[in-house]
């Protein structure tokens, strides 16, 4: 459980995080979605105390991170795949982190096996590819078998197999009742992994809801219809609250009517229909819809966005 209340971070005159309040609950995967520079990494760094909040508070499992007796058992964090001494082997890196909490060496070997690093564990971490560095960061996060997992862009640089592995891992851990907080700027990734979504843009929370609600919310479902008599059907269906687009011949994209009413209308008028597909709004569309307002209202601050919060410092 992560609870942030009016959490803010300013770097001089620049605002990276502008007073956000949110709760990340156990037992589900919570996605933290936003474009680069939105304040995701800064927020996550504040959770584990690497950055000191300018205002507000954030607690993990009821306490400030630094006040826990066993921080690595409370929170496992992958904030930066490069948080490793380049001349030290992966094994020794993990062993040194484990030693702080008297975590046995057997657990080090366990997370090395889990993350598929066994072949390279004795090699210098500086020579690792982005994907292997990412695996090492995940191994470090898992070391204390933590109650809460914070992963900043965990699939960056991973191969498809690794992406799938991370997806299964976080779902599995959430299923075990753990709190999983996962950031990404890849919306497709979020759509497949997260149960709940917190959208952040320019340091502010734009949406905080179950992923299904975000996909439905405010966005009308469209129906794609293929028919040889496209223009006739369009005429028959046209009316208030209905909008019809035609991007290619014999194809209509209709919103404002559900598939059943379109089919009924086609049947009544003897129009042949050979495809009738409800189209789910994609997370991308939902995201752009939600952020559009934010951009419009604050367009005068645009220069600010470009240079705000050093993401992934």
């Amino acid at each position: 459980m992560i609870e942030a209340v009016n959490l803010a971070k300013h770097y001089g005159p620049k605002t990276a995080v502008a007073g956000v309040t949110f709760t990340v609950k156990p037992g589900q995967v919570t996605g933290f979605l936003g474009p680069n520079g939105a304040g995701k990494s800064t927020t996550m760094r504040m959770v584990v105390g690497l950055d000191r909040p300018s205002a507000g508070t954030v607690t993990v499992n009821g306490k400030h991170y630094a006040e826990h007796r066993d921080p690595l058992h409370q929170v496992g964090a992958l904030l930066d795949a490069k948080a490793v001494h380049t001349s030290r082997s992966a094994y020794n890196h993990l062993l040194s982190m484990a030693a702080t909490h008297n975590i046995p060496a057997s657990r080090v070997n366990e997370v090395i096996d889990m993350t598929g690093l066994a072949q390279v564990a004795k090699k210098k971490a500086g020579g690792f590819s982005l994907g292997m560095g990412q695996r090492l960061g995940i191994a470090a996060a898992l070391l204390g078998d933590p109650q809460t997992l914070i992963l900043d862009e965990p699939v960056n640089g991973l191969d498809p197999e690794g992406v799938l592995w991370v997806r299964n891992l976080v779902k599995y851990l959430a299923g075990e009742g753990k709190t999983v907080f996962l950031s990404s700027h890849l919306m497709s990734e979020m759509a497949q992994t997260a149960d709940h979504l917190i959208l952040i843009g320019r340091g502010k929370i734009i949406a905080d809801a179950p992923i299904a609600d975000i996909l439905d919310g405010g966005h009308q479902t469209r129906v794609r219809v293929r028919t040889p008599e496209a223009s006739r059907l369009a005429e028959l269906l046209g009316g208030t609250g209905v909008s019809i687009d035609s991007s290619e011949s014999e194809t209509l994209e209709i919103s404002g009517l559900d598939a059943r009413r379109i089919a009924q209308s086609a049947l009544d008028n003897r129009v042949l229909v050979y495809e009738l597909t409800p189209i789910m709004a994609s997370l991308e569309e939902a995201y752009f819809d939600l952020t559009k307002d934010e951009v419009e209202y604050h367009s005068h601050e645009l220069s600010d966005v470009a240079s705000s919060a050093p993401e992934g410092r």
Partner: peptide
């Protein structure tokens, strides 16, 4: 320089 400090300070937040 390497970023290791963030691992160190996450393990020992005080």
């Amino acid at each position: 320089g390497t970023g290791m400090i963030r691992s160190t300070m996450t393990a020992v937040p005080r």
